[in-house]
Amino acid sequence: MGRRLAGSGGPAFRAALSLLLLCVLTACGGSPEPASRAAAFNDTDVMFLQMGLAQIIEGDRVAEMAESRASNPEIKAVATELRGQWRTERDSMRGWLEQWKRPLEADPSAGLHAGHGDLHSLREEDFTGLSAFRGAEFDRAAVALLLGNLHNAMETIRMETAGGSYPQAVDLAERMTEARQSQIQRLLALAAG
């Protein structure tokens, strides 16, 4: 809608713009919407959301396998909990990127992923490798892969709590810190078995 108005640039656009400005300046309407739209976001917020989404997508593939195939019920329980929380987090994260008109993924041609990022990612062969395992071996590998994914995610999350500026995204990162740390604890207890 903003694009269409901007494109026309006519009186309707100017009217809408002044109304919007008025709302921003006076926080009209009582709804938190105008205020939250006006809240500033920075590059760290965008990167947190883009990288965080990629990490969630990767983690969810491992957790999906763990949920259906692990022998140890505690592994299944952690996987189920993660998947549920990721669904909600993903919705918020996508929502902000869309609201800010930012791509959901960092541009792969920028070299970030082709360079260092790739080292931090799982590959197709890791998933096929995991699916070939059985019983206790599967459990051990699934826990190791989940821990690797969550540790990488924690780095992204902590980057956001340290340097993000969009209050709701920082707030989300703080909640994610708490949730992920407790899941890491449970997975490490399983690894120590």
Binding site: D43, T44, V46, M47, R102, P103, A106, D107, A110, L112
Partner: peptide, 11 residues
């Protein structure tokens, strides 16, 4: 996006 990625990559 390209700018964002470059800036963000730096940070």
């Amino acid at each position: 996006p390209a700018l964002t990625v470059a800036a963000v990559g730096g940070s």
